[in-house]
């Protein structure tokens, strides 16, 4: 699903964010990417999303060399990748329903299909009764659930979660991670960048450790510490 082959990323400022990274995440796999701030986790996500280009090496996502994707194909490429962020990135002036519908509408999904899909997605994340609530009326966990529903709206092959529990209490975090795990069980490849030791230790999935732009540890069913 994701294949980094000797990937290096040096920003214009001279910062070397990734150094000769080799990594393969297989289809249907669940992987945690952990490491301190500045270790290269966000750069890895930006490269996968084709927000940035590698300065060296090759990166394949879903079997496609990201260098071969031209700018007009990028949106279609991104529809196959769902993303959730620490700060949820919900539109504050739209309800839970409208936030999800918005994601479908701007990708030209027909209205009838949107009306059918949004309640289904809300139901998957357990928020059907909150459809008409605005983000400010919801808890952090509920907002992240809406963000998750939006991320899987296009039935992506890959779900990337960038610090999905960063703003949540341990109990809510567990609920969100259970949901992400459930999505993985339905066949979606999942990559979670996190600092949350409890979560990593609880789920015992593959753990990839990044430090100063290099992979220093990569273990199946790993834990946060050594």
């Amino acid at each position: 699903m994701i294949n980094f082959s000797n990937v290096t990323k040096v920003y214009k400022s001279g910062t070397e964010a990734l150094k000769n990274v080799d990594l393969e995440i297989k289809r249907g796999e669940f992987a945690f990417v952990i490491g301190p701030s500045g270790s290269g986790k966000s750069t890895m996500i930006r490269l996968i999303m084709k927000e940035e280009e590698p300065t060296g090496g090759e990166l394949f996502v879903n079997g496609i060399d990201t260098r071969d994707i031209d700018r007009y194909e990028v949106p279609h490429f991104r529809r196959k990748i769902g993303v959730v962020f620490q700060d949820y990135k919900l539109l504050q002036n739209k309800t839970a329903y409208q936030n999800i519908a918005f994601a479908l509408r701007v990708t030209n999904t027909p209205g009838r299909q949107i009306r059918k899909m949004v309640p289904q997605l809300l139901s998957v994340v357990g928020l059907l009764d909150k459809a008409n609530d605005f983000p400010c009326e919801m808890s952090g966990g509920e907002q992240q659930r809406v963000a998750l529903a939006r991320a899987i709206a296009h039935n992506p092959d890959l779900l990337i979660a960038d610090e999905p529990t960063g703003n949540l209490d341990p109990h809510t975090s567990l609920g969100i991670m259970n949901l992400i795990y459930k999505i993985n069980q339905m066949g979606t490849t999942v990559m979670v960048a996190t600092h949350d030791q409890t979560i990593v230790d609880t789920f015992r999935q593959r753990v990839i450790v990044l430090s100063e732009g290099r992979i220093t540890r990569d273990v199946p069913e790993g834990i946060y510490g050594d």
Partner: peptide, 16 residues
């Protein structure tokens, strides 16, 4: 915020 969301959910350049 809307533009960022549209970008990562795969809205086309022209739609944005």
């Amino acid at each position: 915020a809307e533009v960022i969301i549209m970008k990562f959910i795969g809205a086309t350049e022209s739609r944005i």
